[in-house]
Protein backbone atom coordinates (compact mmCIF):
# COMPACT_ATOMS: atom_id res chain seq x y z
CA UNK A 1 0.00 0.00 0.00
CA UNK A 2 1.16 3.46 -0.81
CA UNK A 3 2.09 5.60 2.21
CA UNK A 4 0.28 8.88 2.68
CA UNK A 5 2.11 11.88 1.24
CA UNK A 6 3.27 14.77 3.35
CA UNK A 7 4.94 18.12 2.57
CA UNK A 8 6.85 20.61 4.71
CA UNK A 9 7.63 24.15 3.69
CA UNK A 10 9.13 27.27 5.22
CA UNK A 11 8.17 30.84 4.52
CA UNK A 12 9.48 33.84 6.49
CA UNK A 13 10.95 32.02 9.44
CA UNK A 14 14.21 31.58 11.24
CA UNK A 15 14.55 27.88 10.59
CA UNK A 16 13.83 26.95 14.16
CA UNK A 17 10.67 25.16 13.16
CA UNK A 18 12.60 22.99 10.73
CA UNK A 19 14.98 22.28 13.56
CA UNK A 20 12.02 21.34 15.76
CA UNK A 21 10.94 18.65 13.29
CA UNK A 22 14.45 17.28 13.27
CA UNK A 23 14.40 17.42 17.06
CA UNK A 24 11.88 14.59 16.97
CA UNK A 25 15.17 12.62 16.96
CA UNK A 26 14.62 8.88 16.48
CA UNK A 27 10.89 9.51 16.17
CA UNK A 28 11.64 11.10 12.79
CA UNK A 29 12.24 7.55 11.59
CA UNK A 30 8.74 6.59 12.71
CA UNK A 31 7.46 9.51 10.67
CA UNK A 32 9.38 8.39 7.60
CA UNK A 33 7.94 4.90 8.08
CA UNK A 34 4.45 6.24 8.16
CA UNK A 35 4.54 8.85 5.38
CA UNK A 36 6.22 9.71 2.13
CA UNK A 37 7.71 13.16 2.27
CA UNK A 38 7.14 14.68 -1.15
CA UNK A 39 8.44 18.18 -0.53
CA UNK A 40 10.72 19.58 2.19
CA UNK A 41 13.17 22.10 0.75
CA UNK A 42 15.42 22.16 3.78
CA UNK A 43 16.02 18.41 3.85
CA UNK A 44 14.86 16.67 0.70
CA UNK A 45 15.67 17.54 -2.92
CA UNK A 46 12.29 17.93 -4.58
CA UNK A 47 11.51 20.95 -6.70
CA UNK A 48 8.36 22.97 -7.02
CA UNK A 49 7.89 21.38 -10.42
CA UNK A 50 7.58 18.01 -8.70
CA UNK A 51 4.80 19.33 -6.52
CA UNK A 52 3.03 20.87 -9.47
CA UNK A 53 2.98 17.48 -11.16
CA UNK A 54 1.12 15.86 -8.25
CA UNK A 55 -2.64 15.51 -8.59
CA UNK A 56 -4.67 18.08 -6.62
CA UNK A 57 -5.48 16.90 -3.10
CA UNK A 58 -2.99 14.08 -3.24
CA UNK A 59 -0.93 15.28 -0.29
CA UNK A 60 -2.52 14.28 2.99
CA UNK A 61 -1.00 17.08 5.03
CA UNK A 62 1.29 20.07 4.48
CA UNK A 63 3.02 21.61 7.48
CA UNK A 64 3.93 25.19 6.68
CA UNK A 65 6.04 27.32 8.98
CA UNK A 66 6.85 31.05 8.74
CA UNK A 67 4.67 33.98 7.70
CA UNK A 68 4.05 35.03 4.13
CA UNK A 69 6.45 37.86 3.31
CA UNK A 70 7.55 37.24 -0.29
CA UNK A 71 5.58 36.69 -3.46
CA UNK A 72 7.30 33.32 -3.67
CA UNK A 73 5.82 32.30 -0.31
CA UNK A 74 2.43 33.28 -1.54
CA UNK A 75 2.86 31.26 -4.72
CA UNK A 76 4.08 28.10 -2.98
CA UNK A 77 1.53 28.08 -0.16
CA UNK A 78 -1.28 28.51 -2.67
CA UNK A 79 0.15 25.59 -4.63
CA UNK A 80 0.41 23.42 -1.52
CA UNK A 81 -3.14 24.33 -0.57
CA UNK A 82 -4.33 23.04 -3.91
CA UNK A 83 -2.39 19.84 -3.63
CA UNK A 84 -3.19 19.08 0.05
CA UNK A 85 -6.16 17.73 1.93
CA UNK A 86 -4.99 19.35 5.14
CA UNK A 87 -2.88 22.46 5.61
CA UNK A 88 -1.35 23.00 9.02
CA UNK A 89 0.15 26.29 10.16
CA UNK A 90 3.21 25.06 12.00
CA UNK A 91 4.65 27.37 14.63
CA UNK A 92 3.98 30.90 15.81
CA UNK A 93 5.10 32.72 12.61
CA UNK A 94 2.83 30.78 10.34
CA UNK A 95 -0.06 30.91 12.83
CA UNK A 96 -0.02 34.62 13.71
CA UNK A 97 3.12 36.16 12.13
CA UNK A 98 5.61 35.55 14.90
CA UNK A 99 8.63 37.70 15.57
CA UNK A 100 9.15 38.62 11.87
CA UNK A 101 5.61 39.97 12.08
CA UNK A 102 6.82 42.77 14.34
CA UNK A 103 8.19 44.22 11.10
CA UNK A 104 4.59 45.22 10.40
CA UNK A 105 5.27 48.16 12.67
CA UNK A 106 7.28 49.60 9.76
CA UNK A 107 6.56 50.01 6.10
CA UNK A 108 8.59 48.42 3.33
CA UNK A 109 10.75 51.47 2.70
CA UNK A 110 11.60 51.90 6.38
CA UNK A 111 12.64 48.26 6.54
CA UNK A 112 14.82 48.36 3.43
CA UNK A 113 16.36 51.66 4.43
CA UNK A 114 17.37 50.23 7.77
CA UNK A 115 18.44 46.79 6.67
CA UNK A 116 20.48 47.99 3.65
CA UNK A 117 21.56 51.32 5.09
CA UNK A 118 21.12 52.52 8.63
CA UNK A 119 21.73 49.35 10.61
CA UNK A 120 25.05 49.73 12.46
CA UNK A 121 26.51 46.53 11.01
CA UNK A 122 25.83 47.45 7.38
CA UNK A 123 28.63 48.43 5.05
CA UNK A 124 26.96 49.36 1.78
CA UNK A 125 28.53 52.53 0.36
CA UNK A 126 26.78 52.15 -3.01
CA UNK A 127 23.44 51.91 -1.32
CA UNK A 128 22.65 48.70 -3.18
CA UNK A 129 19.14 47.43 -2.68
CA UNK A 130 17.62 44.14 -3.81
CA UNK A 131 15.71 44.53 -7.06
CA UNK A 132 12.81 42.50 -8.25
CA UNK A 133 14.02 42.44 -11.85
CA UNK A 134 17.62 41.96 -12.79
CA UNK A 135 18.58 42.38 -16.44
CA UNK A 136 22.18 41.84 -17.37
CA UNK A 137 22.69 38.88 -19.63
CA UNK A 138 19.33 37.33 -19.03
CA UNK A 139 16.27 38.74 -17.40
CA UNK A 140 16.00 37.48 -13.84
CA UNK A 141 12.91 37.87 -11.77
CA UNK A 142 13.31 37.78 -8.02
CA UNK A 143 10.41 37.27 -5.65
CA UNK A 144 8.93 40.58 -4.57
CA UNK A 145 8.84 41.83 -1.00
CA UNK A 146 5.19 42.16 0.07
CA UNK A 147 4.09 45.35 1.83
CA UNK A 148 3.54 43.46 5.05
CA UNK A 149 3.93 40.04 6.58
CA UNK A 150 0.76 37.95 6.53
CA UNK A 151 -0.17 35.02 8.72
CA UNK A 152 -0.77 31.91 6.66
CA UNK A 153 -4.54 31.90 7.14
CA UNK A 154 -4.84 35.35 5.58
CA UNK A 155 -3.43 33.98 2.33
CA UNK A 156 -4.91 30.48 2.22
CA UNK A 157 -7.44 28.41 4.07
CA UNK A 158 -5.78 26.75 7.07
CA UNK A 159 -7.16 23.63 8.72
CA UNK A 160 -5.12 23.35 11.91
CA UNK A 161 -2.52 25.17 13.95
CA UNK A 162 0.46 23.88 15.87
CA UNK A 163 1.71 26.65 18.17
CA UNK A 164 5.16 27.45 19.53
CA UNK A 165 8.33 29.26 18.69
CA UNK A 166 9.19 26.66 17.82
CA UNK A 167 6.68 23.92 18.66
CA UNK A 168 8.32 21.50 21.06
CA UNK A 169 9.01 17.94 19.82
CA UNK A 170 6.31 16.68 22.20
CA UNK A 171 3.74 19.03 20.74
CA UNK A 172 4.83 18.19 17.19
CA UNK A 173 4.61 14.48 17.81
CA UNK A 174 1.20 14.72 19.46
CA UNK A 175 -0.05 16.80 16.54
CA UNK A 176 1.31 14.33 13.99
CA UNK A 177 -0.34 11.48 15.88
CA UNK A 178 -3.66 13.25 15.68
CA UNK A 179 -3.19 14.01 11.97
CA UNK A 180 -2.26 10.46 11.14
CA UNK A 181 -4.92 8.88 13.36
CA UNK A 182 -7.59 9.99 10.91
CA UNK A 183 -9.67 11.04 13.92
CA UNK A 184 -9.60 14.74 13.15
CA UNK A 185 -10.85 17.51 15.45
CA UNK A 186 -13.00 20.40 14.15
CA UNK A 187 -11.38 22.65 11.58
CA UNK A 188 -9.46 25.53 13.08
CA UNK A 189 -8.37 23.55 16.13
CA UNK A 190 -4.98 23.92 17.73
CA UNK A 191 -3.18 20.56 17.70
CA UNK A 192 -0.86 19.09 20.28
CA UNK A 193 -1.15 21.82 22.93
CA UNK A 194 -3.30 22.36 26.00
CA UNK A 195 -6.80 23.89 26.26
CA UNK A 196 -5.78 25.84 29.32
CA UNK A 197 -3.29 28.57 30.06
CA UNK A 198 0.28 27.78 30.99
CA UNK A 199 -0.30 28.43 34.70
CA UNK A 200 -2.31 25.23 34.85
CA UNK A 201 0.78 23.09 34.18
CA UNK A 202 3.27 25.49 35.73
CA UNK A 203 5.08 24.01 38.75
CA UNK A 204 5.01 27.47 40.40
CA UNK A 205 1.24 27.99 40.17
CA UNK A 206 0.71 26.86 43.75
CA UNK A 207 3.21 29.38 45.06
CA UNK A 208 0.89 32.30 44.25
CA UNK A 209 -0.51 34.42 47.07
CA UNK A 210 -4.29 35.10 47.34
CA UNK A 211 -3.99 38.36 45.52
CA UNK A 212 -1.34 39.41 43.05
CA UNK A 213 -0.91 43.15 42.95
CA UNK A 214 2.31 44.53 41.49
CA UNK A 215 3.96 47.70 42.69
CA UNK A 216 6.70 47.63 40.07
CA UNK A 217 7.80 45.72 37.00
CA UNK A 218 11.23 44.38 36.27
CA UNK A 219 13.09 42.78 33.36
CA UNK A 220 14.84 39.46 33.84
CA UNK A 221 18.35 40.97 33.83
CA UNK A 222 17.41 43.32 36.66
CA UNK A 223 16.66 40.68 39.29
CA UNK A 224 18.04 37.50 40.72
CA UNK A 225 15.09 35.23 40.15
CA UNK A 226 13.88 32.89 42.87
CA UNK A 227 13.17 29.75 40.78
CA UNK A 228 10.80 28.39 43.44
CA UNK A 229 8.37 31.30 43.33
CA UNK A 230 5.84 32.41 40.71
CA UNK A 231 7.76 34.81 38.45
CA UNK A 232 4.82 37.17 38.15
CA UNK A 233 4.86 37.73 41.88
CA UNK A 234 8.55 38.62 41.49
CA UNK A 235 7.39 41.54 39.30
CA UNK A 236 8.51 39.92 36.05
CA UNK A 237 6.13 40.17 33.12
CA UNK A 238 5.26 36.51 32.78
CA UNK A 239 2.66 35.92 30.09
CA UNK A 240 1.91 32.42 31.35
CA UNK A 241 -1.63 33.33 32.46
CA UNK A 242 -2.60 34.53 28.98
CA UNK A 243 -0.70 31.91 26.96
CA UNK A 244 -1.82 28.48 25.89
CA UNK A 245 -0.11 25.70 27.77
CA UNK A 246 1.35 22.50 26.39
CA UNK A 247 5.03 23.45 26.28
CA UNK A 248 5.65 21.97 29.74
CA UNK A 249 6.63 25.39 31.14
CA UNK A 250 10.13 25.04 29.67
CA UNK A 251 11.07 28.70 30.08
CA UNK A 252 9.73 28.91 33.61
CA UNK A 253 11.77 25.86 34.55
CA UNK A 254 14.79 27.77 33.29
CA UNK A 255 13.75 30.74 35.46
CA UNK A 256 12.69 32.83 32.47
CA UNK A 257 9.20 34.32 32.23
CA UNK A 258 6.84 33.10 29.53
CA UNK A 259 6.91 35.33 26.45
CA UNK A 260 3.75 33.88 24.96
CA UNK A 261 4.89 31.81 21.98
CA UNK A 262 1.94 29.39 22.26
CA UNK A 263 -0.50 32.24 21.64
CA UNK A 264 -3.94 32.72 23.05
CA UNK A 265 -6.66 30.36 24.17
CA UNK A 266 -9.80 29.60 22.19
CA UNK A 267 -12.03 32.07 24.03
CA UNK A 268 -9.67 34.99 23.65
CA UNK A 269 -10.27 37.31 20.73
CA UNK A 270 -6.93 39.16 20.69
CA UNK A 271 -3.81 37.91 22.41
CA UNK A 272 -2.01 41.20 22.93
CA UNK A 273 -5.15 43.03 23.96
CA UNK A 274 -5.90 40.36 26.49
CA UNK A 275 -2.30 40.37 27.72
CA UNK A 276 -2.36 44.13 28.29
CA UNK A 277 -5.77 43.91 29.90
CA UNK A 278 -4.74 41.17 32.30
CA UNK A 279 -1.41 42.70 33.17
CA UNK A 280 -2.76 46.22 33.64
CA UNK A 281 -5.45 44.93 35.98
CA UNK A 282 -2.96 43.65 38.54
CA UNK A 283 -0.83 46.78 38.61
CA UNK A 284 -1.42 48.48 41.91
CA UNK A 285 -1.36 52.00 40.52
CA UNK A 286 -3.84 54.80 40.72
CA UNK A 287 -2.40 58.12 39.63
CA UNK A 288 -1.42 59.49 36.24
CA UNK A 289 2.18 59.77 37.42
CA UNK A 290 2.20 56.08 38.32
CA UNK A 291 1.01 55.24 34.83
CA UNK A 292 3.74 57.38 33.29
CA UNK A 293 6.33 55.66 35.44
CA UNK A 294 5.21 52.17 34.54
CA UNK A 295 5.23 53.02 30.84
CA UNK A 296 8.83 54.14 31.23
CA UNK A 297 9.59 50.69 32.59
CA UNK A 298 8.22 49.15 29.42
CA UNK A 299 10.42 50.38 26.56
CA UNK A 300 8.89 48.01 24.03
CA UNK A 301 5.28 47.20 24.88
CA UNK A 302 4.54 45.86 21.40
CA UNK A 303 7.50 43.55 21.61
CA UNK A 304 6.33 42.33 25.00
CA UNK A 305 2.61 41.89 24.50
CA UNK A 306 2.41 41.30 20.75
CA UNK A 307 5.72 39.52 20.33
CA UNK A 308 4.25 36.61 18.35
CA UNK A 309 0.83 37.79 17.29
CA UNK A 310 0.92 41.30 15.85
CA UNK A 311 -0.05 40.54 12.21
CA UNK A 312 -3.01 38.40 13.35
CA UNK A 313 -4.15 40.90 15.96
CA UNK A 314 -6.85 43.54 15.71
CA UNK A 315 -4.08 46.13 15.47
CA UNK A 316 -2.31 44.31 12.61
CA UNK A 317 0.58 46.75 12.72
CA UNK A 318 1.35 50.25 11.61
CA UNK A 319 1.67 50.36 7.85
CA UNK A 320 1.95 53.88 6.52
CA UNK A 321 0.09 54.42 3.31
CA UNK A 322 2.21 57.26 2.01
CA UNK A 323 5.74 56.45 0.87
CA UNK A 324 8.51 58.89 0.25
Amino acid sequence: MEKPKMALYWCASCGGCEEAVVDLAEKILDVINLVDIVFWPVAVDFKIDDVEKLPDGSIVASLINGGVRLSEHEHVVKLLRRKSKIVVAYGACSSWGGIPGLANLYDKEEILKYVYGDAPSVDNPGGVRPREKHVEEVELELPSFLPRLLPLDVVIDVDYYIPGCPPTPEVTWKALEILLSGNLPPKGSVLGASDRALCYECPLNNTKPDKILLKDIKRPHQVIVDPEKCLLTQELICLGPVTRGGCGALCIKAAMPCTGCFGSLDEVIDYGGKAVSYFASILDYYTEEDVERILDRLPDPMGVFYRYTLPASRLRGKIKTTMR
Binding site: Y200, I212, P241
Partner: peptide
Amino acid sequence: EELCSGCGICVSVCPYGAIIIQIKENTR
Protein backbone atom coordinates in the same frame (compact mmCIF):
# COMPACT_ATOMS: atom_id res chain seq x y z
CA GLU B 1 -13.74 25.42 35.03
CA GLU B 2 -12.52 23.43 32.03
CA LEU B 3 -10.85 26.56 30.62
CA CYS B 4 -9.51 27.98 33.88
CA SER B 5 -5.80 27.69 34.61
CA GLY B 6 -6.12 28.86 38.20
CA CYS B 7 -3.82 31.80 37.48
CA GLY B 8 -5.63 33.83 40.14
CA ILE B 9 -5.84 37.14 38.28
CA CYS B 10 -9.60 37.33 38.83
CA VAL B 11 -9.17 36.80 42.55
CA SER B 12 -6.69 39.66 42.60
CA VAL B 13 -9.02 42.10 40.89
CA CYS B 14 -12.45 41.18 42.26
CA PRO B 15 -13.58 44.14 44.38
CA TYR B 16 -16.18 42.08 46.27
CA GLY B 17 -14.08 39.10 47.28
CA ALA B 18 -16.52 36.98 45.32
CA ILE B 19 -14.00 34.62 43.69
CA ILE B 20 -12.06 31.88 45.40
CA ILE B 21 -9.38 29.48 44.16
CA GLN B 22 -10.27 25.88 44.75
CA ILE B 23 -7.56 23.27 44.71
CA LYS B 24 -8.50 19.83 43.43
CA GLU B 25 -5.82 17.14 43.02
CA ASN B 26 -3.13 19.77 43.20
CA THR B 27 -4.56 21.84 40.37
CA ARG B 28 -6.11 25.20 40.85
